[in-house]
C-alpha cells in the first residue's frame, strides 16, 4: 500500500461535485429506499455548495445520478425560472456538463420543489423531490427517536386522531400541502410539500420518485406501481384543491393547479402553476406546433 493507491491525481472538483465515496453512500441508501417504499432511510448528507434547506437533499441525489447525457429539468413551486430553480439548474450543468431543459417531456431527471409536473411522467424518467421535513409524524411527535419507534410499530394512531380532530372542528381535514400518505400499505410518509392535487400522481405511477431531505439527512422513495394512499376516513373522501374549474388568464388552460394572483380590486386571477406547461399552452394557442404530453388530470379531474 502506498499513498498513490489511496489517492488519485488532483482535480479542483470531482465530476458532479460529490466525491466517489459520497456517491457510493447515496447509492447504497437509494437502494434501501427503493426496496422499502416510503420508509425514511438515514444518510450522511454531505454539505454541498448551497445552504441547507435549499434543496441540498434533492441536489445530492441528482448529483449522484447525473451523467453528461442526462437531460435535467429543475422546478421550484412549479416554475423553471424561479430563482432557486435557476440556481440549482446552473449548478447541476456546471459540475456535470449535463444538458438542461424546461420541457417535462424532454427531461430524463426532474428535480422539483413542491410540485409534480402536470404531464404524465414516463417510466424512463426519475423525479427527485426536495423535502424540508421528512417526518410526517413531526406535528404529533417532534422527537425523532420516538417517531422512528412509531414507524417501526406502524403506530399511526395519533396521526389518525389529529385528522379526526380537524374534521370534528372544521368539518374537513385541514392539511394543506404535505398530505400524509400510506405507502405500500405499511409506511406513512410525507409526499413533501406538494399540494394535495399532486399526491394522486404518485399512486401507481410509471416513474420512480426519490424524496430526499438534506438537512434532516433522510431519503425515501416511491417506486413505480406502488400504492400511495392519502390517509382518509371511509366516509370523508380525499379532496384535492378546488382548482379543477379555474382557467389560466395567460394561456387559457383549464383544469390544472393554479397560482392565485391577487388583484387591486380585491378579486383574484389565476395562472397555471406548472410554468412550462403554461408556456406550451400559449405557444399552441398562438399556432405553433408544440408537443403537449398527456396530463394526469383530464378536464380538471383525476381519472380513478
Amino acid at each position: 500500500m502506498s499513498l498513490a493507491n489511496l489517492t488519485k491525481p488532483w482535480a479542483p472538483m470531482s465530476y458532479g461535485f460529490l466525491d466517489a465515496s459520497a456517491k457510493r453512500e447515496l447509492r447504497r441508501k437509494m437502494i434501501k429506499a427503493v426496496c422499502v417504499p416510503g420508509c425514511q432511510m438515514p444518510y450522511a448528507s454531505r454539505e454541498v455548495p448551497m445552504a441547507r434547506g435549499w434543496g441540498t437533499g434533492g441536489l445530492q441525489v441528482s448529483l449522484t445520478l447525473i451523467n453528461p447525457a442526462m437531460r435535467v429539468k429543475v422546478i421550484d413551486q412549479g416554475a423553471d425560472d424561479s430563482v432557486n430553480a435557476a440556481s440549482i439548474r446552473r449548478f447541476l450543468a456546471r459540475v456535470s456538463g449535463a444538458p438542461t431543459t424546461l420541457d417535462t417531456l424532454d427531461a430524463d431527471l426532474i428535480q422539483s420543489r413542491h410540485r409534480i409536473p402536470e404531464e404524465i411522467l414516463r417510466e424512463d424518467q426519475v423525479l427527485v423531490l426536495q423535502v424540508p421535513n421528512p417526518e410526517p409524524l413531526r406535528s404529533v411527535q417532534p422527537n425523532m427517536s420516538i417517531a422512528r419507534q412509531m414507524h417501526g410499530d406502524a403506530d399511526y394512531g395519533r396521526m389518525w386522531l389529529q385528522l379526526y380532530e380537524q374534521i370534528v372542528r372544521s368539518g374537513r381535514v385541514m392539511q394543506g400541502a404535505s398530505y400524509p400518505s400510506m405507502v405500500n400499505g405499511r409506511h406513512v410518509m410525507t409526499p413533501s410539500p406538494i399540494p394535495r392535487w399532486d399526491v394522486p400522481k404518485l399512486h401507481m405511477a410509471r416513474h420512480l420518485t426519490i424524496l430526499s431531505a438534506g438537512r434532516e439527512k433522510r431519503i425515501f422513495a416511491v417506486p413505480p406501481y406502488t400504492r400511495v394512499e392519502p390517509l382518509v376516513f371511509d366516509d370523508v373522501p380525499y379532496r384535492v384543491e378546488d382548482h379543477g374549474g379555474l382557467t389560466c388568464y395567460r394561456s387559457g388552460a383549464t383544469g390544472f393547479f393554479m397560482n392565485e394572483i391577487p388583484q387591486g380590486d380585491g378579486t383574484s386571477t389565476y395562472e397555471v402553476s406548472d410554468s412550462e406547461y403554461g408556456v406550451k399552452a400559449i405557444r399552441a394557442r398562438d399556432g405553433e406546433v408544440v408537443a403537449m404530453g398527456e396530463t394526469w388530470y383530464k378536464d380538471g379531474k383525476m381519472p380513478q
Partner: peptide, 23 residues
C-alpha cells in the same frame, strides 16, 4: 466543468441499471 473518468462512468451506468432493476 469536470469530466467523468472511466471509474465514474462505469459506476454511474452500473447504478443506473441497478436502480432501474430494483424499481
Amino acid at each position: 466543468t469536470p469530466t467523468a473518468d472511466a471509474a465514474e462512468r462505469s459506476a454511474n451506468a452500473t447504478f443506473d441499471a441497478l436502480l432501474w432493476a430494483l424499481s
